[in-house]
Design a protein around this nucleic acid. Structure first.
Lengths: 244, 244
DNA sequence: GTCAATTCTTGATCCAGATCAAATTTTAAA
DNA sequence: TTTAAAATTTGATCTGGATCAAGAATTGAC
């Protein structure tokens, strides 16, 4: 349909789903895609809605969350540029198991389920990529599950922050800035804790010069120490009786 | 290679991975598979070993576990007859993210990674199935993650027991028997708790006539009440002050 | 600027469930 | 049958982190 710019195509070929495909093939596939823009806080889809489309995020950021029957929220995943989400829709078809809500202004492509079903057999390479992505996703989720089952809140928070740094950290001279609105509540929902516990730990980290925390802002000053906390080389508790 | 019996082929066609395939196709695929038998407690593969094969469980049962750096175990999944496991190996190739240990005598087929890579494009239907299975797996894992993040031990245990009932419960006249060695420790590892907490809850359930618990044995007498506990319709705590 | 709405901090308290410590029961092996 | 090993129960205690409560800081609207 629409002609895609060279830069855009260059971006698109970086998407895992399209790895190894020719740009002409990507164009053929995207002929079926519908572009859309969402403002922060808007939803791509809501939990339990019929899964109609898979999305490719071009620009922006969003979170995938599940709501429990009693209203608690759990953040399953943060999605960044050039990642796909709503994969369940791709084939299984049922309902979205979670909601997807923009945390920044988002530009994305939507691929309808019936188009995907038609396209996947036509582009086996893409099917393989999709499979690969799901395996990867399961793998990550397993790690987080183990983390939640066995690690204390401080370590889980360290892991979560480091993951965010990896995914969307912008390096400045003396720190790594997380360019997104990120409340204590958000962090708590990522690690299965409460905003109070997160606040306490961040305050303590800030006191030790590991991070800079503001209202819905966070920068990491010493990622290496954070890694040590995440990997249990060091406990904050150890510092209490540490020699000066 | 080997001729497969009619009964076996009938069983095999029930496997999700082979859904929609012709029995001749299944035979072609399984020509590449290597059959193997494992005694209880033996490992199909260990965590961090190079992922060389995907397995199809014909008969028996096993558990997929992750070990934390400090030696705690987490049960990621119980695998029953006609399910596949070690899917990571199928494509991504890296290392097994978990170990697979037989809990009963197991009969399985192993499909080597290189054979899978060759077969998948040849049988697009199978590739679709594999994808579907991974989506399903992710879905389940998400649910368990949310459960772990938000629910109390008693409810998580109820969920876990009901899942086991679904997967491998054998119905008797007055109860549903879980035909597998199942220690308090095993259950604890499935829900991210301790054997002490599990023991206390099972004792309490037994006192209320919901289950029959023995050494490495468990039967469910009132699955409906267990469902209510799992879904928080009822709390054990409520009973303390309940009218007689 | 002022005001109101959010978000965040921090102290105080509480509790589910982990940990510890002994029995006790079950099972299997000698 | 005796005995030892493993699994389980159950009481006692402890504690990480949730919950509650009350300000303080930040932000945006007017």
């Amino acid at each position: 349909m629409n002609e895609l710019s060279v830069e855009l195509l260059d971006q698109l070929s970086q998407i895992d789903l399209f790895a190894g495909l020719l740009t002409t093939e990507i164009q053929e596939i995207l002929a079926y895609a519908r572009p859309l823009t969402l403002q922060p806080d808007a939803y791509f889809f809501q939990q339990a809605a019929p899964a109609k489309a898979l999305y490719i995020l071009l620009e922006g950021q969003l979170k995938v969350t599940q709501l429990t029957p009693d209203g608690q929220q759990v953040v399953m995943r943060m999605v960044n540029s050039l990642e796909i989400f709503g994969c369940v829709a791709a084939l299984s078809g049922g309902e979205y198991p979670a909601s997807a809500q923009a945390t920044k202004t988002c530009q994305a492509y939507a691929l309808r389920q019936k188009d995907i079903q038609m396209l996947l057999p036509q582009y086996p390479k893409m099917a393989m990529n999709a499979f690969q992505i799901m395996v990867q996703r399961t793998h990550e989720l397993q790690d987080r599950y183990r983390e939640l089952a066995t690690e204390c809140v401080e370590r889980r928070l360290a892991h979560a922050v480091l993951r965010l740094v990896d995914q969307s950290g912008r390096e400045e001279s003396d720190k790594i800035v997380l360019d997104m609105p990120l409340s204590r509540q958000d962090l708590a929902e990522m690690i299965g804790s409460t905003l109070y516990s997160v606040s306490r730990i961040l305050s303590q980290w800030e006191g030790r010069g590991l991070v800079l925390a503001g209202r819905e802002k966070l920068s990491v000053v010493k990622p290496d120490i954070l890694s040590q906390i995440a990997e249990a080389q060091i406990f904050s508790a150890d510092l209490k009786n540490a020699p000066i």
